[in-house]
Design a protein around this nucleic acid. Structure first.
Lengths: 108, 108
DNA sequence: TTAGACTTGTCGTTGATTGACAAATATAAG
DNA sequence: CTTATATTTGTCAATCAACGACAAGTCTAA
């Protein structure tokens, strides 16, 4: 998907013919703040992902992928990190899942 | 590398024969808090990465890779996200770099 | 020109992270 | 044993960034 998360929300909203105020109410968000989110001036809050999915009938897994991929990409871009970081992260996730890592070894 | 970032620091420190207090001073960190970091009870702060690299003569790129891969892996593990998120993130980073994205499209 | 939709700026609140310190425990040497 | 040093753990006030809220502005179309 070649669009920013804010644009994505705006597309969903306008497709359904909602105003900022209407969607804001569904998401428990001020229309002004929703406007900023759609325009990339604020972050969409992770805690509203499920609500967003249910409002538009989206698959939550895909939505999380879209959301967090942007979060990670932004961080890598900002810090000018090598994309190798993503391969290493993948190994670590596998390892954590195999080991069922709990707090104690790692701050969760 | 199959160790947590805190363990990694501890290894570096003990190899050089530093105490928590000694390394803490170099990193501008309380020895008690450094202890927590090494034991995975606090996060190492991103802003100290360069200092850490210079204290131990590490390559900053590798260090960033180690550090952020753990950050990302932890988030994926916590949110039970598909590792597909990493592939999508890679595409996005490429796109941001090609486009030289500035704040305005995306909150940076 | 009026109404509704959207944008922008600001600011106090809030929630999480940090620094700092005290106290407890461990480790090792004399 | 006892003393000194290293490490761990708990706590809490200060700090800082993200957020909610609101006011005021612009834009658009009837």
């Amino acid at each position: 998907m070649k669009q920013y998360f804010g644009e994505y929300i705006r597309n969903l909203r306008t497709e359904k013919g909602f105003t900022l105020t209407q969607l804001g109410a569904k998401l428990d968000l001020d229309s002004a703040n929703l406007s900023k989110i759609e325009n990339g001036k604020r972050e969409f809050d992770e805690k509203r992902l499920e609500l967003l999915a249910s409002v538009f009938g989206l698959d939550i897994e895909n939505l999380k992928t879209e959301f967090f991929s942007e979060v990670f990409a932004k961080k890598i871009y900002q810090t000018n990190c090598s994309t190798e970081v993503l391969n290493v992260a993948e190994e670590k996730v596998k390892y954590y899942r195999e080991q069922n890592v709990q707090q104690g070894k790692l701050k969760l």
